[in-house]
Design a protein around this nucleic acid. Structure first.
Lengths: 143, 143
DNA sequence: GATATAAAAGTATTTAAATACTTTTATTAC
DNA sequence: GTAATAAAAGTATTTAAATACTTTTATATC
C-alpha cells in the first residue's frame, strides 16, 4: 500500500524526532545510515518533506535537517500524504478506477473497512507517539 | 499491498466463476476484455493460476479456462498466495526485514492488527461469495 | 493425418519507482 | 570576500513489474 520511499520517510522523520531533544540537526548520510536506506533516496525524499513543511532544513556548515516541537505533533498521515499523495486511501481494492458505493467492486465494503481502519490509525498516531518506544529502546528503525 | 497482477487475477477468477453455471470456457481475450486488463498480463497470470490449481484449462478448439465447483469454494487468499506469494501478509509496515514482536518497528502492533484483519477477510471470502453480487448486477469487475 | 484453434512457454520491451551522479545555491567560519 | 560545508536541484541509470511479441505444444474437427 505505502511506497518504499514513504516507509523510508516515516522512519527518517521519527529519527529526526529522536534528535530534537538535543537540538541537533542530522545530515542525509547520517539519517540514511541510521534507517538503513539509500542516501540518494533519502536525500530526494527529505527535499519533498521540507517543501511540504513536514520537516525543516538549513544549508551550509552545521546545516542539516531538523524538526520542531509543533511538527512532532503531526500525524503519520501527514507524512504519507506528502510522499504518496492524498489519493492513496481512496483506491479500490481490486483496482477499478471508478469504484464507489453505487458502482462497487465485489469486495468494496469489506475492503473499505480495512482501508479506513488503516487511515484512522495513521491519522491518530503522532510522530511523538512513535518516538517514545524508539527512545526507550523498545522499537527499532532498522534491522 | 496486492500487486496489480494479483487484483487482475481476482477479477479473472470471479469472471470464470460467473461462467461456471453454463459450463462455458472462457479464452484469454474474452477474460481480458471483460475485466479491462492487458491480454498479455492476463495470459501469463492465468498460466500461474492453472499451475497452482486455482483454475483449469484446456488447449485446442473449444478450449479455454474454467473453474470447478470445488474451486469455487476457494478463498481469496488462495488466489493471492498463488500470485503474490505466501509472505505478503508477514511484511513489516515500515519495511524492516526482521520486524517481530521482539524486534518491532514503531508501528508493529497497530499495523499487525490491520494486516491480520485484511488477511482474515481474504481468508473468509470465498470466490462463490464474491460471485453473487456480480451475477445480480450489484457489483462490477471493471469501470 | 492435415488443419485449425487456443493455451503454454520463452523471450523482449516498456514503464514507473528507486537509486545514482552532477551541478548549483545558501550558509558558516575564517 | 574566500573557502568549506551541506542541502537543493536537475539529470541519468538501474531494477522490477507490467506489457508485448514469438514459438511451441496439445486438442479437436474434418
Amino acid at each position: 500500500m505505502l511506497s518504499l520511499t514513504c516507509k523510508t520517510a516515516i522512519k527518517a522523520v521519527i529519527y529526526l524526532a529522536t534528535k530534537m531533544e538535543t537540538g541537533e540537526k542530522a545530515g542525509i548520510r547520517e539519517i540514511a545510515t541510521f534507517i538503513n536506506a539509500s542516501e540518494h533516496t533519502v536525500g530526494k525524499m527529505l527535499q519533498t518533506l521540507v517543501k511540504e513543511d513536514v520537516i525543516n532544513s538549513m544549508k551550509g556548515p552545521n546545516g542539516g535537517f531538523f524538526i520542531t516541537g509543533k511538527q512532532k505533533n503531526q500525524s503519520l498521515l501527514k507524512i504519507i500524504h506528502a510522499i504518496d499523495g492524498t489519493e492513496i486511501f481512496q483506491q479500490c481494492g481490486l483496482g477499478l478506477s471508478k469504484c464507489s458505493a453505487t458502482h462497487p467492486c465485489p469486495i468494496h465494503d469489506d475492503y473499505k473497512i480495512i482501508r479506513d481502519g488503516f487511515k484512522n490509525m495513521c491519522q491518530q498516531k503522532k510522530i511523538s507517539d512513535l518516538l517514545e518506544p524508539v527512545n526507550d529502546g523498545l522499537a527499532y528503525l532498522m534491522g
